[in-house]
Design a protein around this nucleic acid. Sequence first.
RNA 1: GGUGCGGUAGCCAAGUGGUUAGGCAACGGUUUGCAAAACCGUCAUACGUCGGUUCGAAUCCGAUCCGCACCUCCA
Length: 510
Amino acid sequence: MPVRLYNTLTQKIEDFVPATPGKVKLYVCGITVYDLAHAGHGRTYTTFDVLVRFLRARGFEVSHCQNVTDVDDKIVNRAKERGEEPLALSKRMGELAEEHLAAIGCMRPTSMPRVSTTIDGIVDLTQRLIQKGSAYVAETPHGKDVYYSVRSFPGYGKLSRRNLDDLRAGASERLAAGAVDVKKDPLDFALWKAAGPDGFGFDSPWGKGRPGWHIECSAMAFKELGEHIDIHGGGMDLVFPHHENEIAQSEACSGKELARFWMHGGFLEIDSEKMAKSLGNFVTIKDVLEKNDPEGYRYFVLGTHYRGPLSFDVEKHDDGRVTFPGLDEAERRMDYLYATRDALVSLADGSEPGEPNILQGQAEVVAGAKERVLEALDRDLNTPVALSVLAELGKAGNEIVMQAPKMKKDPAKHEAVRKLAASAVRALAAACAPLGLMQAEPEAYWKRTKARRLRLRGLAAADIDAKVAARTEARKAKDFAKADAIRKELAAVGVEVFDAADGSSWKITL
RNA sequence: GGUGCGGUAGCCAAGUGGUUAGGCAACGGUUUGCAAAACCGUCAUACGUCGGUUCGAAUCCGAUCCGCACCUCCA
């Protein structure tokens, strides 16, 4: 079955075939780094990270270019507020964004060009557009601007399905609000803007200035990937005008189709509204990492198809704690998967994976898991179905663990079930890989989640250990009233105690 | 006004013409000193509303209601 992806350009799910067999050129619009990256950015980049992992798992060689917008009016304004150099601010925020995206499991793109180091390409592209009659220079009080002439490009609106006359009404109204009109047509957009009174800018044939927002992506895509790419992606909010303008610039210049496929991720919402910096309702990735495990966040994101809206809940508890219930639930599922893997590993006990003739139903789930995940992703990255495969695999794994003791008396059967357990461990890793889940060593996962949950509850492991030890003493003395009292006391502060044959352990409630 | 997206059982969420999605919660079991975890079972013949097409519709067509986004910077 071929890889199938939804294409915004055609509004259909289509078979994906790259221009060069086996090689995929992917360009993803990156972040404007004037502030911390938020959970909505995280969702989009997680989607494309899964796309990359999946395409590679399907045997494609993927070049993934994702830009960093480090030159922009918002950066200049924010820097001014803080009394900082614009490029110093964007460098700092860019590094934090990279760090936070890496933390939530997004692999580093193959290339991450910046506007500040692509000025030559941007100037070159702008000049070519002027020469072709697609752009023109306009005089402003500060110097020279360059605008793209939208009406010179016949295909304008093909991605976002807008017609120029509908757009014009809105654009005219905006102009009445007081902007200086140096454009020949209200729809025209800037390729180059003269430096403002702040003086921040780069040298160019039109004097000191800086690029418009859209031109950078055209220049970077050309430079890093060439004039025709296979997939161009970003958030839903970029369809218009950003991607529409990119198409106009790039295609007017090269005469080639910029991208065969256009993919757009849906929004992360809070209270049914888009999470956005401009609305002030955002939760940063840093906030998420404070409260939840990064893989829990990833599981949460992948639980909804990438094109649909995903609602991010925030809950304020009576005791003053603020939690993200959706992330907590997802994190419990990660606990389940890691715990299942631990149980399988200890059952396998060094045994080699195999396909033994035992526990047929479970063995079938184990054998088919990886391919079923890939098949789910074949269908326009259907990650929720992929996660349902993980759920079934986890259940099969626990069933294997549960059945094993019954086979202890028969060495051949027990050996077989250990082989199956080893296969299940391997299947879990293989099924999770294209999703970027279970990337941590189990010990590391338990260590980091425990440390974080203790911190959030304001608890110390030593205190809990002492109470659990006291309870163990009470249990040995058959003083169950006291043991239960201690359990209740711990439960009240969010600690669950459970007893096993080899002693008691505890866990912080999420 | 223009352009899109979405409304599926208590909650979250797949499914685009005909055979179990999956998860959470709740309840009943197995297990346990009691619990928890894990597993089994129930909730589940659910698909915003009204019409139409069809042997058959959550799925196709028409109308309509509701929510959201984009049309200005936005992942």
